[in-house]
Write a protein that binds this DNA or RNA. Structure first.
Lengths: 162, 162
DNA sequence: GTCCCTATACTCGGATAGCAAGTGTCCGAGTATAGGCGG
DNA sequence: CCGCCTATACTCGGACACTTGCTATCCGAGTATAGGGAC
């Protein structure tokens, strides 16, 4: 079980976009510069976010990305699934239907206990992520980020948005 | 986020081993045959379970694998972590310490909200898996497996264990 | 001064290589058993 | 008939190829803007 690096980047990007004034877009290249990550690769994930309807792209000059919904209506789960794919982590291959003790297919009506337990665990994981929105992340930035860094970020943002 | 196939195999193997009389060992090749999976590859995961102290190997003729602990003392989480690695799925690369708004290292004392939320979700996942033991899985086999299949499995097992 | 047109520069989007990890396989080291031999 | 010894066959354990998916990159299509020119 491993989560791709793009998940972290995407969540940070959404947080940044959530701090912008409504309607203002930030280019992908600027988002990459702000986080010091490869711009070309970040673009791939921003594309996924765009396809999922989480961010929307503004083309042309002074274009970029901006949140497609209010920050409070975007959950962390939405972002994670958009970037990492919405397939469940555990996939039951029904190996109980194979081997020397297999019986006719019609007897397998109830999922096996292993699959149920794994899916329950994944539901717990998803529910936890569903309980935090991008708006929550933005709201607690002043608690986890030093004021000095916030000032620098605001200054940089002002020079970029122009 | 994707869980390797070996996780499923390992959990099923532990369930099977949990049904055996105490002290009896089942060779990896028979476990593979019972589940109809590649024996050579399953051996790799059984090795991991052995290293983790979940199963113990009995060498030589009539050897094989058996649970190293009572089935009620082995949680699903133990098995999953042994096979899939115990690294957290989400790894914070501290990208907030990079880019144009970075400040001196000493200001980053509290983990960022994103990492905290991701870790909380993973804790929920782990806690859920911790609440189910191999013994629980064995105990509910008669609810999720048809009696006919149980009979066939017992018959096969008897012919193999000799 | 105002409006329109064009060229520009900037944006996103998808198609294209490189690499790590999971997947699959193999052969060698070690051991408990089965059978034969001697007493 | 009983005990010992040896050869065997079977076990696990680690070292070696292959495939999938994540990582990283590039170039082309499209558009809002900026500037210049005409009215």
């Amino acid at each position: 079980m491993k989560l791709g690096e793009g998940v972290e980047w995407s969540l940070h990007c959404c947080s940044v976009l959530g701090t912008l004034p409504p309607g203002v877009a930030l280019p992908g290249a600027r988002l990459a510069e702000f986080h010091d990550v490869p711009a070309s690769y970040l673009a791939k994930h921003l594309q996924a976010l765009s396809s999922a309807g989480i961010v929307e792209s503004v083309t042309g000059r002074n274009g970029g990305y901006r949140l497609a919904l209010p920050a409070d209506e975007i959950t962390m789960l939405d972002v994670v699934l958009a970037v990492n794919g919405d397939e469940p982590a555990f996939r039951c291959s029904e190996i109980r239907q194979r081997g020397p003790s297999a019986i006719s297919l019609e007897h397998y009506v109830r999922p096996c206990g292993i699959a149920r337990a794994m899916w329950d665990a994944e539901s717990a994981w998803r529910n936890s992520l569903r309980n935090t929105t991008i708006g929550d992340l933005v709201g607690e930035l002043d608690q986890s980020v030093a004021p000095e860094q916030i000032d620098k970020a605001i200054t940089w943002m002002g020079s970029v948005l122009r």
